[in-house]
Protein backbone atom coordinates (compact mmCIF):
# COMPACT_ATOMS: atom_id res chain seq x y z
CA UNK A 1 0.00 0.00 0.00
CA UNK A 2 3.01 2.30 0.06
CA UNK A 3 2.34 3.58 -3.45
CA UNK A 4 -1.35 4.43 -3.22
CA UNK A 5 -0.88 8.00 -2.11
CA UNK A 6 -4.39 9.08 -3.19
CA UNK A 7 -6.01 6.30 -1.16
CA UNK A 8 -3.82 7.01 1.85
CA UNK A 9 -4.49 10.75 1.77
CA UNK A 10 -8.23 10.26 1.28
CA UNK A 11 -8.36 7.80 4.19
CA UNK A 12 -6.63 10.31 6.45
CA UNK A 13 -9.04 13.02 5.30
CA UNK A 14 -12.15 10.84 5.66
CA UNK A 15 -11.45 9.25 9.05
CA UNK A 16 -12.19 12.30 11.25
CA UNK A 17 -15.55 13.14 9.58
CA UNK A 18 -16.62 9.48 9.75
CA UNK A 19 -15.80 9.30 13.47
CA UNK A 20 -17.46 12.66 14.12
CA UNK A 21 -20.58 11.46 12.30
CA UNK A 22 -20.50 8.28 14.41
CA UNK A 23 -20.43 10.36 17.60
CA UNK A 24 -23.23 12.57 16.25
CA UNK A 25 -25.39 9.51 15.53
CA UNK A 26 -24.55 8.12 18.98
CA UNK A 27 -25.45 11.17 21.04
CA UNK A 28 -28.14 12.61 18.78
CA UNK A 29 -30.21 9.40 18.62
CA UNK A 30 -32.86 10.94 20.90
CA UNK A 31 -33.60 13.65 18.35
CA UNK A 32 -32.94 12.15 14.92
CA UNK A 33 -32.60 8.72 13.38
CA UNK A 34 -29.82 6.60 14.79
CA UNK A 35 -28.61 5.25 18.09
CA UNK A 36 -26.01 2.94 19.55
CA UNK A 37 -26.15 0.22 16.88
CA UNK A 38 -25.68 2.53 13.91
CA UNK A 39 -23.14 4.69 15.72
CA UNK A 40 -21.05 1.68 16.72
CA UNK A 41 -21.01 0.43 13.15
CA UNK A 42 -20.11 3.84 11.69
CA UNK A 43 -17.34 4.31 14.24
CA UNK A 44 -16.03 0.83 13.40
CA UNK A 45 -16.10 1.68 9.68
CA UNK A 46 -13.44 4.36 10.28
CA UNK A 47 -11.14 1.70 11.79
CA UNK A 48 -11.96 -0.80 9.03
CA UNK A 49 -11.10 1.80 6.37
CA UNK A 50 -7.82 2.45 8.19
CA UNK A 51 -7.07 -1.30 8.27
CA UNK A 52 -7.84 -1.70 4.57
CA UNK A 53 -5.34 1.00 3.60
CA UNK A 54 -2.63 0.79 6.29
CA UNK A 55 -2.77 -2.89 7.23
CA UNK A 56 -3.64 -4.72 10.45
CA UNK A 57 -0.31 -4.11 12.19
CA UNK A 58 -0.80 -0.33 12.23
CA UNK A 59 -4.51 -0.76 12.97
CA UNK A 60 -3.61 -2.74 16.09
CA UNK A 61 -1.58 0.25 17.25
CA UNK A 62 -4.71 2.44 17.30
CA UNK A 63 -7.12 -0.31 18.39
CA UNK A 64 -5.01 -2.75 20.44
CA UNK A 65 -6.45 -6.06 21.48
CA UNK A 66 -6.39 -5.11 25.18
CA UNK A 67 -8.82 -2.29 24.32
CA UNK A 68 -11.19 -3.96 21.86
CA UNK A 69 -11.66 -7.32 23.59
CA UNK A 70 -12.58 -5.98 27.06
CA UNK A 71 -14.67 -3.25 25.40
CA UNK A 72 -16.99 -5.95 23.96
CA UNK A 73 -17.91 -6.87 27.53
CA UNK A 74 -17.77 -3.36 29.01
CA UNK A 75 -20.63 -2.17 26.77
CA UNK A 76 -22.93 -5.02 27.81
CA UNK A 77 -21.90 -4.56 31.46
CA UNK A 78 -22.65 -0.82 31.25
CA UNK A 79 -26.13 -1.60 29.87
CA UNK A 80 -26.83 -4.28 32.46
CA UNK A 81 -25.23 -2.09 35.16
CA UNK A 82 -27.73 0.70 34.50
CA UNK A 83 -30.44 -1.87 35.26
CA UNK A 84 -28.71 -2.85 38.51
CA UNK A 85 -28.32 0.82 39.44
CA UNK A 86 -32.04 1.47 38.95
CA UNK A 87 -32.80 -1.53 41.17
CA UNK A 88 -30.44 -0.24 43.89
CA UNK A 89 -32.20 3.14 43.69
CA UNK A 90 -35.50 1.42 44.38
CA UNK A 91 -37.05 1.05 40.91
CA UNK A 92 -37.58 -1.94 38.64
CA UNK A 93 -34.76 -3.28 36.46
CA UNK A 94 -34.06 -0.72 33.67
CA UNK A 95 -36.71 1.71 34.97
CA UNK A 96 -34.76 4.93 34.35
CA UNK A 97 -37.25 7.19 36.17
CA UNK A 98 -35.39 6.74 39.46
CA UNK A 99 -31.96 7.76 38.07
CA UNK A 100 -32.61 11.48 38.64
CA UNK A 101 -35.05 13.55 40.69
CA UNK A 102 -37.10 14.35 37.61
CA UNK A 103 -38.34 11.25 35.75
CA UNK A 104 -37.67 12.95 32.39
CA UNK A 105 -34.03 13.60 33.31
CA UNK A 106 -33.75 10.05 34.58
CA UNK A 107 -35.12 8.66 31.33
CA UNK A 108 -32.77 10.87 29.34
CA UNK A 109 -29.73 9.78 31.34
CA UNK A 110 -30.72 6.11 31.25
CA UNK A 111 -31.23 6.13 27.47
CA UNK A 112 -27.92 7.94 26.94
CA UNK A 113 -26.05 5.39 29.08
CA UNK A 114 -27.61 2.25 27.59
CA UNK A 115 -27.12 3.61 24.05
CA UNK A 116 -23.48 4.26 24.94
CA UNK A 117 -23.22 0.64 26.14
CA UNK A 118 -24.73 -0.61 22.88
CA UNK A 119 -22.40 1.63 20.85
CA UNK A 120 -19.26 0.46 22.69
CA UNK A 121 -20.11 -3.22 22.30
CA UNK A 122 -21.05 -2.91 18.63
CA UNK A 123 -17.90 -0.92 17.83
CA UNK A 124 -15.62 -3.32 19.69
CA UNK A 125 -17.24 -6.45 18.23
CA UNK A 126 -17.13 -5.14 14.64
CA UNK A 127 -13.46 -4.13 14.94
CA UNK A 128 -12.62 -7.43 16.67
CA UNK A 129 -14.34 -9.55 14.02
CA UNK A 130 -12.79 -7.66 11.12
CA UNK A 131 -9.26 -7.55 12.54
CA UNK A 132 -9.41 -11.24 13.42
CA UNK A 133 -10.40 -12.09 9.84
CA UNK A 134 -7.56 -9.95 8.47
CA UNK A 135 -4.96 -11.22 10.94
CA UNK A 136 -6.04 -14.78 10.26
CA UNK A 137 -5.49 -14.13 6.55
CA UNK A 138 -1.98 -12.81 7.19
CA UNK A 139 -1.30 -15.78 9.45
CA UNK A 140 -2.50 -18.20 6.73
CA UNK A 141 -0.32 -16.45 4.15
CA UNK A 142 2.76 -16.90 6.37
CA UNK A 143 1.89 -20.51 7.14
CA UNK A 144 0.49 -22.02 3.92
CA UNK A 145 0.04 -25.49 5.40
CA UNK A 146 -2.44 -24.21 7.96
CA UNK A 147 -4.30 -22.00 5.47
CA UNK A 148 -4.68 -24.69 2.85
CA UNK A 149 -5.98 -27.07 5.47
CA UNK A 150 -8.69 -24.72 6.74
CA UNK A 151 -9.37 -22.67 3.61
CA UNK A 152 -10.75 -25.25 1.24
CA UNK A 153 -13.20 -27.37 3.13
Amino acid sequence: MRLHSILRTMTKLLMPPIMLFGLYVQFHGDYGPGGGFQAGVIFAVAFILFTLIFGPTRARQVAPEWVTTPMCAIGVLLYAGVGVATMLLGGEYLNYNVLAHDPHHGQHMGILLVELGVGLTVWAVMVTIFLNFVERHDHAALDPGDGAEDGHV
Binding site: G29, D30, Y31, G32, P33, G35, G36, F37, G75, V76, Y79, A80, G83, Y93, L94, Y96, P103, H104, Q107, H108, G110, I111, V114, E115, G117, V118, T121, V122
Partner: peptide, 25 residues
Protein backbone atom coordinates in the same frame (compact mmCIF):
# COMPACT_ATOMS: atom_id res chain seq x y z
CA UNK B 1 -43.40 9.41 30.00
CA UNK B 2 -39.99 9.20 28.31
CA UNK B 3 -39.32 12.48 26.53
CA UNK B 4 -37.10 12.11 23.43
CA UNK B 5 -38.65 13.49 20.24
CA UNK B 6 -37.50 10.38 18.34
CA UNK B 7 -40.09 7.82 19.43
CA UNK B 8 -38.06 4.95 17.97
CA UNK B 9 -35.37 5.65 20.56
CA UNK B 10 -37.95 5.78 23.36
CA UNK B 11 -39.35 2.41 22.32
CA UNK B 12 -35.95 0.74 21.74
CA UNK B 13 -34.09 2.00 24.80
CA UNK B 14 -36.85 2.51 27.36
CA UNK B 15 -40.10 0.62 26.71
CA UNK B 16 -38.27 -2.31 25.10
CA UNK B 17 -35.08 -2.01 27.17
CA UNK B 18 -34.96 -5.75 27.88
CA UNK B 19 -35.08 -6.62 24.17
CA UNK B 20 -32.27 -4.22 23.35
CA UNK B 21 -30.18 -5.65 26.20
CA UNK B 22 -30.77 -9.07 24.66
CA UNK B 23 -29.73 -7.82 21.21
CA UNK B 24 -26.55 -6.30 22.62
CA UNK B 25 -25.79 -9.63 24.29
Amino acid sequence: EVGPPNMVTSVLASYRGYDTLGETT
